[in-house]
Design a protein around this nucleic acid. Sequence first.
DNA 1: AACATTATGTCAGCGACTGACATTAGGCAA
DNA 2: TTGCCTAATGTCAGTCGCTGACATAATGTT
Lengths: 226, 226
Amino acid sequence: MAAQPAAPAIDPGCRVLGLRERKKQRTRDALVDAAHTLFLDRGYGDTTVDEIAAAVDVSQRTFFRYFANKEEVALAVMADAEDFFIDCLRGRPAAENPLQAMRAAITEAWRTLGEGRGTGPGGVTAALELFELIETTPTLLAAHLRRTTEQERVVAGVLADREGLDPLTDLRPRLLAAVFGSVVRISHLSWSTDGAGADAGPDGMIELIERHLDQLGPALAGSWRA
Amino acid sequence: MAAQPAAPAIDPGCRVLGLRERKKQRTRDALVDAAHTLFLDRGYGDTTVDEIAAAVDVSQRTFFRYFANKEEVALAVMADAEDFFIDCLRGRPAAENPLQAMRAAITEAWRTLGEGRGTGPGGVTAALELFELIETTPTLLAAHLRRTTEQERVVAGVLADREGLDPLTDLRPRLLAAVFGSVVRISHLSWSTDGAGADAGPDGMIELIERHLDQLGPALAGSWRA
DNA sequence: AACATTATGTCAGCGACTGACATTAGGCAA
DNA sequence: TTGCCTAATGTCAGTCGCTGACATAATGTT
């Protein structure tokens, strides 16, 4: 408890990952990749878990040891991206106010994720296809919204931490998290359905989010007749 | 095609509903009721569709002719309430600005729904139990969020209509609808989890929503340090 | 009373998911 | 290397949500 269990002179942890872990990571990635391809090809509902598993040469049972359900494999990359956003948010300097920090964090996240992998899995073009798939697949949309909502709770916690507030007493953290979540979702929608005059890169996404954030005030203002 | 098919002198439509329709309505209500009871008793996941159908003495196949899936029967009353809210919103005078209209509509909806049926199905106590069930059941929460999101699109359309805007060009209708949806959802959460200092009646719910709406400005404000 | 319509029941089947148990393979020590 | 422990995988059987196809019964109409 006091000290770490005696470690060999050459820390085995320095070998980034054991063969076992690396193999697991590989099959997991392969599953996500195969699923992604199949879903985009013949649609989510018309793709069976057996087919995904077969594509990676793995039993169905193994698939369900990696993913709790069929939706999870489809939303895996989204989930990772959201986790990354939260990391970015945690890293923002305390000097920024809440809204500034959120804005900066999401810009940072999109910029980073967009770097180097414009195409290919996890890339921006793949993201666009994924958004459309989610939006047009009721089951996926439902699961995605749930995930998003869970993340908002985490975000609210981070915000409350930054400001030294009790998230149960003060309503602002949860509210800002939820409102920001809505803005991001609507932006994703605009990005995938109508081009909305934005270019297809991460910069286009960032611009869209900024545009929507800028409209928050006007939308909540008393009258819309300018 | 040009005129309605010749109708008897005494309009048959005046008989509110034929025997057939009444019967259908009764079994539908019975299914919702039985499902509600079973879900609250042994939980959503541990209740099978067969059990619900059996409780109403109907085949499983018939159940699925009334509801597309297991979630739908659980969320039926919520769906009706949301539809009613939209009706209220449509009925608000054009003089009110968008936010005012939304505020007034939801107050009106809760007041009306709360009248007369404090207990019993569709009543306020039942609503509280339902909120908790939804919030603690991942599958239900996902389905509920999806429903809610669909409704937001409708609400945005109504708002755009009121103001004579194109909902594709102007971002404000969708934004306000989404933000309002978030406020309502968070209020529901507060209402069911922590009492949040509100009483259990519809008035308590209304008060909670008002409190959250009042905090929207502060939450979006630059600094939270007052 | 005969007919058209529509709700319901029955049956067979697919696909998502789970628990239990056997088997294999990676990590580690003697 | 050998052998053991543990963790990953495969196999199997079974439950449950859900659907299409067809038969039957109830209802409404002429």
